[in-house]
Design a protein around this nucleic acid. Structure first.
Lengths: 407, 407
DNA sequence: AATCTTTAATAAAAAATTTAAAAAGGTGTG
DNA sequence: CACACCTTTTTAAATTTTTTATTAAAGATT
């Protein structure tokens, strides 16, 4: 397994041939990881090395218990190929998804299967100055109860909201400690490669690796939860920008002298296009006596949340539909900007609010017709995300794979 | 020379070794093209092949009259290295810069030197339905008078305003012919690879290859002429987007119910941040009796152009300064959006209006302070372009090199 | 000025990869 | 059901590349 986890420094000391061979090994593992079982011939073609070369490396990987023969593939009129795939216990990766209210984690095997229950812990970021130790304890417990061999865990991936510099492993917005961070701290404690990334970017990565953005090169993944987040796949790669902060779509200036945003500025797009904007619009409307099923919620003393409004809309509540439409139109205006600037092939809308589906899409389309050049607008498809609730854990794990196996 | 111009199809038929060798040859030529003379040791390190391999290829290239020994480099404490560089007549490239009012062209040698006078022809795109033949004749003449061997011209690069799909070689906005385009037409006529790209993107490429964006990975290049254009370097590569239309910064929606833009929409950024916006503001101001040296221009019956206003500002004209400031602030608002979305390391402002320099930069900074998150804003440097008037021709040629030599 | 250290180029030896050819295993057809 | 045809795998030979050692040249040190 050491060929997977060797650090850059150790790599530098190797001879050119050894380095190339090790890199080829990693590329094969990575290829099998993201594409499943493949034949030697196919790997040879994809990775542009001759079949004998690939065969010898495959045999080495088999000896190292990383891959196994996995039966035969279908024939296209010739000898049936032997398929090689990763052994499902070849290695494990821990994915940790930190959100504002809770932290979820699970261990995935080399077949991308979740092998532990997805544990969720109620950790409210705002209440904690430093929940690192608590998360650490949960992680330790999960690893122990999972029963995997300690040295077969090869990395940890973390995603969390706020500004994150994945290069240095530093998180800024939440529990930003002096000269440290959750990633660096875990790296020391576990003696393992630990990677951290902003949650919107991780969702983008999840869509790129496992969702509808697969095989695309220029896709924007927008997340409409309480806030408005975005991750971008540009040139077939997650765009991090110069210091890891690219994609702050929610905080582009939109409304002159608008409402105060969480970020401290006024009139950010997020103030008019997000779950919290939706709730605000609902409250404003209801307080002026709008007729809506949402009034019942308020009367019951329940907290109004985006999900409730979406549900109301899906049940035909006209007021709910109208405020979703308002939010959709503003979002559409923002998307028009994205389309003009980036000319993406696909935009994926995810998050709770995106569940409003057609009630959201229609006003977006309307705004696009109004605000973007048709020639450009026609190049971009807009769809709703289909990834499930564990998308972020999957994305975090994908990040680990990419970082370990990427040249 | 044939190894340079071999098409993809021919390449496919080669054996693996031959292909790799040919590709390595191209990479060496490309490396020497963009970085000047280098030693075998240095090439070996950069291109990650052993010194003997590089040496044999270098010798082949010398035999083929593509490169020559070019004296010795400085020593860093040992034997002085032999420097190898491209022969200045190894190959030639024709660069054609089509702008709205005129078309310029020149031939460059393999040392990136302009070997013919830069010819400029007055060709007003709006008056022509199809100036292709005229441009073709000028090109033929230039090639003939240049005296270069016909088969040493290895490619043609063209840039022009408007929407351009560089992949298919199609230009849309101007003289868009059915089933053809200037690039395809030239390709047939010259039997040479011809590449075309939008002018803003070509300027970005020029900055990336020869200007201040050299060695950067995430840089935005904004051009303020009569219009507002942009090219982006993302992940160290020119961003074209899904269909080649990325970067329409001038046409993001900015002003609600704003002025009608050339593109047909209302309130585009270009309507308030561009040379034409500047002229409009000037005219509006002067007609309401503003005190300014610009009044003299009008009284002389001269046409008011951006350059005049810039000059007035640089001579201390307060009114000119104030409207430039207005334009700068609006542009700054747009730039704030770019910074939030793309987190660039550098933004380069070019074009006539950018010559207003500090009068433009100060209001931009002001807008950024107001509209962008400090943590993000601080990551981006903003500078004024230093490239000269032939930047576009250079950029067009760089595009040819990239297309021919890129894997 | 002589010697040592560092770097570059070259030549020979060793290792690795590719090519080519043959064998093996399937599919489809007359 | 034999036979042609196709594709994958295996094997061996040929080729290429890398490594190692050597020589040459320049700068640093004593």
């Amino acid at each position: 397994m050491d060929f997977l986890t060797k650090s850059e420094k150790v790599l530098e000391q190797l001879s050119n041939v050894e380095k190339k061979k090790l890199l080829l090994k990693r590329r094969i593992v990575r290829y099998l990881y993201f594409h499943g079982s493949k034949s030697a011939a196919e790997i040879s073609k994809k990775l542009k090395s001759s079949i004998p070369t690939i065969t010898t490396i495959i045999n080495e990987l088999i000896t190292a218990n990383v891959i196994t023969e996995q039966g035969q593939g279908i024939s296209s009129g010739g000898r049936r190929p032997i398929l090689y795939g990763l052994q499902n216990n070849a290695f494990y990766i821990l994915g940790i998804d930190i959100s504002r209210l809770s932290t979820k984690m699970a261990i995935l095997n080399s077949k991308l299967e979740i092998i532990t229950p997805v544990e969720s812990y109620s950790i409210k970021l705002k209440n904690y100055s430093n929940p690192i130790d608590e998360i650490y304890q949960h992680a330790i417990n999960l690893i122990e109860t999972s029963g995997i061999k300690p040295n077969s865990l090869i990395g940890i991936g973390i995603d969390m909201p706020g500004l994150v510099d994945s290069k240095s492993g530093t998180n800024y917005t939440y529990f930003n400690l002096k000269n440290s961070s959750i990633a660096l701290s875990f790296q020391e404690k576990f003696k393992l490669p630990v990677f951290i990334e902003n949650d919107a970017k991780i969702r983008a990565l999840a869509e790129y690796r496992y969702g509808q953005a697969k095989n695309t090169k220029n896709t924007l993944i927008i997340h409409l939860g309480w806030n408005l987040g975005m991750g971008m796949i540009i040139h077939g790669k997650l765009l991090r920008g110069h210091s890891g902060f690219a994609g702050e779509f929610g905080h582009i200036p939109m409304i002159e002298n608008g409402i105060l945003c969480n970020c401290g500025k006024q009139g950010c797009l997020e103030t008019v296009a997000s779950g919290s904007a939706l709730v605000r619009l609902a409250k404003e409307g209801l307080s002026t006596g709008k007729n809506s099923t949402l009034n019942n919620i308020i009367e019951n003393g329940e907290e109004l949340i985006p999900k409730t409004i979406i549900n109301a809309a899906n049940n035909g509540d006209q007021f709910a539909i109208s405020i979703i439409s308002k939010v959709g139109f503003e979002l559409g205006k923002g998307i028009a900007i994205l389309i003009q600037l980036l000319n993406p092939e696909l935009i994926i809308l995810g998050g709770r609010v995106a569940e409003a589906n057609q009630y959201l899409l229609t006003p977006i389309e309307q705004a696009l017709n109004h605000y973007s050049i048709p020639k450009l607008r026609n190049q971009t498809k807009i769809v709703i995300s289909k990834l499930g609730v564990n998308a972020n854990i999957l994305g975090s794990v994908a990040m680990v794979i990419e970082n370990i196996f990427e040249k």
